[in-house]
Write a protein that binds this DNA or RNA. Sequence first.
RNA 1: GCUCCCGUAGCUCAGUUGGAUAGAGCAACAGCCUUCUAAGCUGUGGGUCGCACGUUCGAGUCGUGCCGGGGGCACCA
Length: 666
Amino acid sequence: MTITDIQNALREKVRVIAKEKLSVEPDHIASEIPPKTELGDLAFPIAFELAKLIKQQTGEKQNPRAIAEELKNGISEFDFVDRVEIAGPGYLNVFYDRTGFLLDENSAETGANEPGTKVCVEHTSVNPNKAAHIGHVRNAVLGDTFIRILKADGKEVETQYYIDNTGVQVADVAVGFMFIHNMNLDDIKALDKELTESDKKFDFYCWDLYAQVGRAYQENEELKEKRAEVLHLIEEGDNPTADLADFVATRNVECIVETMERFGVRYDLLPRESEILHLKFWEKAFGQMKELGVIHYETEGKNAGCWVMPFAEHSGTDDHESDKILVRSNGTVTYTGKDIAYQMWKLGILGMDFFYKRFHRYADGKEIWVTTENADEAESGFPAFGGGETIYNVIDTRQSYPQEIVKKGVAAIDPEKGEKASVHLSYEMVALSPAAAEELGFELSEEDKGRTFIEMSGRKGLGVKADDLLDRMEIKALAEVESRHPDSDEAEKKHIAHQIAVGALRYFLLKFTRNTVIVFDFKEALSFEGETGCFCQYSAVRVNKIFQKLAERDESVAEIKAALTDREKVAEIFGSEAGSDIWSMLILAARLDETIHNAAAVNEPAILAKYTFNLAKAFNLFYHNHKILPEPDAVKRAVLISVAEKVRDSLTRSLNTLGIEVPEKM
RNA sequence: GCUCCCGUAGCUCAGUUGGAUAGAGCAACAGCCUUCUAAGCUGUGGGUCGCACGUUCGAGUCGUGCCGGGGGCACCA
């Protein structure tokens, strides 16, 4: 019986007693984990509410403590309950049977999940015109971790990285290549080869070029006009400019996929915007919306010639219309329009499909697929893509407004699915502290210096590039590993340094809740002490070491645990002075699945990050207070090792769910 | 103007659908390595939870108003 089963059984019992004995049915049976172990393992502050309900129904005034007494008797019947206490004005504190719990945990089967429903998660979706910066990594790590959480919670998940290969940003870089550097496709290919040979990255080159184009636009109006032409040619496709842009976008995606792989982030499918257009996905969605009358054509006013969707929730002003343009007067489709079609496809309600081909093969053989409009290019052997029961879109909170429109558009066509099934997993940006911006070599205006943070900007070339930061972390971690394990071989040291660097960065990005702006600070991000990924890894390495030692000494864990059959002695240990300590450790480790479920339910990976840190912290204390291997008493040693085993399992799984590996040694 | 988010220790942040004495990390100071790894552990100091009113047995959490900071309201995404 898992801890979740226990809680559900207790909650259900409380509900039944309330109904049968007290004739009241509260909407929700609240329960909480008491602030201290001495106050029990689960508490119901329900008596107050029941007293109120009884008073409302009958006018009879009941003492909450008397109600708690009534509940206590029923709950005490369970085998897994050791005792129930009534505390304060009417808290019902339940204490689990510690011995039974430990033995049960030891025999419990882990995770026999039924095949769950399929969901799609879109994340990363960096514009394919430059290298990824730390803000993009927040998106990717958030999405990737959420996916791991959903999978751990029993869902089948498909990961998509949407490629906006026909947008303005790609056009900007194409303009740079074509009109600033006067390069054609062959020149760019030659440049790419040259860069690769000198160990430089194409996306880094584009990063600088994009910033250069941004500056050039300010002083060169002609160039800006070129952008519109280039954008139009890219959207149209099948011309030299479109081919050039396609090469640039594809190379950038390759680079970004490579970068994200370093962070442990992977994808299943790369749906491309060009296919949404050329395979007429948009036209189909457009037709349906026209038919349903959710959009209309403006014949006059400032939006004359556009197809717009009214958006009544936002009131219009003189400066701003409340309508959202989906089709521009020149006939091109806005991103919002294209996203409606894309989301419909993701939900499996569009009734059309892409062609697919292989894009990339990871070292372990896993493949990424990409969409194609060309039936001749299409490859077979791909898994069934799209058709998610729920779709999660990991997108910056600054896009909340367009996301609302997209949702509304989808809901207009399919009311049943649209409203609930499309979830905007929003998160705040990663910004730079003024100090960090200066550290990157940017000159700040007086106004900027006074700001609490400075927004990163691809257009200005202002940002911490993902690869640069990870490189820096790996160098720092390697120095630490060198000093601790000078005799290990180079490859192993590098591997450990990499694991530590990724752990530190992922944890750093995950410990903040989604709606907190992360003001990036080098010192804090590069730290290996305190609340960091490294701290959690270190704790896991420690617990692993105990079992390594046992193996070295040819001691069998199963044989050691045989001593647990002496239930009386086990109960005595839990009842001793150290007993509560040991029990706290065990029950905290047992709360992983509950925590994962909670994190999935409220779409908040930070909950799991915090839990992991608390678990690691608790184990460090446990480790300090109880000498496990030298413990002379066989039964106590068995108890300590069983608890350590549970911690090892939970901490490893918890870290893996955060995408953080546990190094062999640290 | 409209709208969303934030305001909790010197700094950076947690705080479950309203529950018990508001917690971490960093920074500061004082301790702990013949032991299963000190990237660790222990202790000390540090709070009008922005302000006010309200709802409630109970408010950091919910409501209203105000103050302060940020985002959004493009024929960009």
